[in-house]
Write a protein that binds this DNA or RNA. Structure first.
Lengths: 147, 147
DNA sequence: TACAAATGTAATTATTATAATTACAGTATC
DNA sequence: GATACTGTAATTATAATAATTACATTTGTA
């Protein structure tokens, strides 16, 4: 068993949702099998280690389980018609927002600069909520059935 | 007059919407004045050259005008109650999407890999449309009046 | 029991994207 | 003509992302 938390950025990288949805689509397509990270990585055409990191997030979210050792791999824990695209989005997103504020601190001596981050943060949350609401309309199964 | 198009990425950088909205808020707050890029940059606490690049985009969109030379600067071309936050979002966004596909080409020999980009692209557009629809609810004036 | 094939994760390196800076031509005002 | 702007190219610096290497651990199976 492993105890330490991996140091994978909690930032919502632009592509992470695509990676997670691709993985989840494969798992729902072949939901009787344990799929290996190498196989998944070959579908994505990306590094297996990165796939395993994304899998760690999906596991934490309770959507998948993994089995170590020979013939191991990952598979869904829930049926795909109970998983909404918004579930995947919200999990990946964490406490980050899809659009973000500047790193630099705006000028506190300026009427606008002093308050802009607070006001922008509210807009960012509104944006994320709108995305989540939209993605509630589609289940993983709906998505998978397009293939 | 300048003829060449500047080489500013058309990619929707996570922070560009914040930058643009900050600029537009300043312009609507002080809409009788020509504000210089240096002044705007000092409110944002960022480089004036980057501000001027963002200003170039806002000009192309027809929302602001600029005046060169001494006592020059930028100001709004439209009244702030005719500018929706979605207008600014869509301008900055261009043909990009807020979330994106992988750079790597997914495996064309995989049932999922072969079609995933097409399907994901559709989700990405859905996301952007949801954001745009949400941001239609607020005008620049509404936003400015919070300050 | 030894081997093979997996996950899990740390650590490092490579690559790309973003931001800042420098430089300077052009323009308008005083 | 000096000054204070915009516009933009080119370069450099920094940060973020992705890939790789390495290896401990686990599990099935010959």
């Amino acid at each position: 068993m492993y105890c330490n938390k991996i140091n994978y950025s909690t930032e919502l990288v632009k592509t992470r949702f695509s990676i997670a949805l691709h993985i989840m689509t494969l798992l729902s397509m072949y939901d009787n099998d344990w799929l290996s990270s190498t196989l998944i990585a070959s579908s994505l055409n990306m590094n297996p280690v990165l796939v395993r990191k994304e899998i760690a997030t999906l596991k934490e979210g309770g959507y998948i389980e993994s089995k170590e050792g020979k013939n191991g791999g990952v598979r869904l824990l829930k049926t795909s018609n109970k998983i909404l695209l918004s579930d995947i989005f919200n999990l990946i997103k964490g406490s980050d927002t899809v659009l973000s504020l500047l790193k630099n601190t705006p000028n506190p001596n300026c009427k606008v600069g002093k308050q802009i981050n607070e006001k922008l943060a509210s807009v960012m949350n509104t944006i994320d909520n709108a995305i989540s609401k939209e993605l509630q309309k589609q289940t993983l199964e709906d998505f998978k059935n397009q293939f």
